[in-house]
Write a protein that binds this DNA or RNA. Structure first.
Lengths: 150, 150
DNA sequence: ATGTATGCAAAACATTTGCACCTGG
DNA sequence: CCAGGTGCAAATGTTTTGCATACAT
């Protein structure tokens, strides 16, 4: 049943692709690194090589099924492409990632690109901050460490 | 004279640091990779190792002298930190980088972070697009190779 | 002098690729 | 059956690190 998405993307339906797609759909984290996925596969007793994970993810990206992000660490994370565009806010303390959309920002980006003579092909907005979630390290009661504004 | 910035940052004033700082200040491109800087040093007949370039850049970043960016390619580029914050627009065809500021976007980010319960520590907005500059490959100018649309 | 910075080479990482074998349609 | 996909291992490109030496203060 799952194979639909793959076939629609022009990709042969193979076990590794199905499994990787399944892992991307599963789990609390929408944003996973190749290594994350590889480890999840090992945990499911699937015999799939890391190279294949990378190959499949690259194909998925080319097919528009997933998006590749390079958050500040430089390591790539992949996210299933379900419908609408959105931007990200990442907690620098606990690594949590949330998504948001702001039409005003989108419009302004469009306008800026036009003014500077660009035709937008893509854009990435990531806000880094400290969340106030209980259990998140980085805000020890009253003595929060000062944030550094760039 | 140059040494002031370094000493103020708590760094010993050494030749490699001075030279690297000088290269960051020089040249049309504000955004340079470690390799770029290394090659520029070689061009100036300076005998400075690539490892030192990385070490110095990391120290500069820690000291707040430079900012490290990871544009979409995953390779790090460094930019001298002079005053005001700004965002970036990158041409996916020729690699040109321009900077811009939009207060509306800044304000909206602040508001979004507040709504989601974050205290902003930093943020990165990069727009990727095709510039219309003559000589930029990606639009039948002179001898351009075809652009690959993501 | 003396502790730190540097150069070189080797290591560590994330990611890609070559090639023989396996699998899906 | 056959094109293409996969596993493994080796290659790649970037960034980091260990260690002996050189340098700034």
């Amino acid at each position: 049943m799952e194979g639909k998405d793959l076939r629609k993307a022009g990709l042969k339906v193979t076990l590794p692709r199905l499994k990787i797609l399944e892992i991307l759909e599963t789990g609390g984290t929408r944003h996973k690194s190749a290594e994350d996925i590889y480890k999840a596969l090992l945990g499911s007793n699937e015999d799939i090589g890391l190279a294949t994970v990378y190959r499949v993810l690259t194909q998925f990206e080319a097919a528009g099924l997933v998006t590749r992000h390079h958050f500040e660490n430089g390591m790539a994370v992949f996210e299933l492409n379900e419908g609408a565009h959105h931007d990200h806010i990442v907690c620098v303390d606990c690594g949590r990632v949330e998504e948001f959309v702001d039409n005003g920002i989108e419009e302004r980006q469009q306008r800026i690109a036009e003014e500077l003579g660009y035709e937008i092909s893509d854009h990435a907005l990531v806000i880094y901050g400290h969340c106030r979630r209980p259990g998140c390290p980085g805000h020890g009661g009253g003595a929060g460490k000062p944030s550094v504004q760039s």
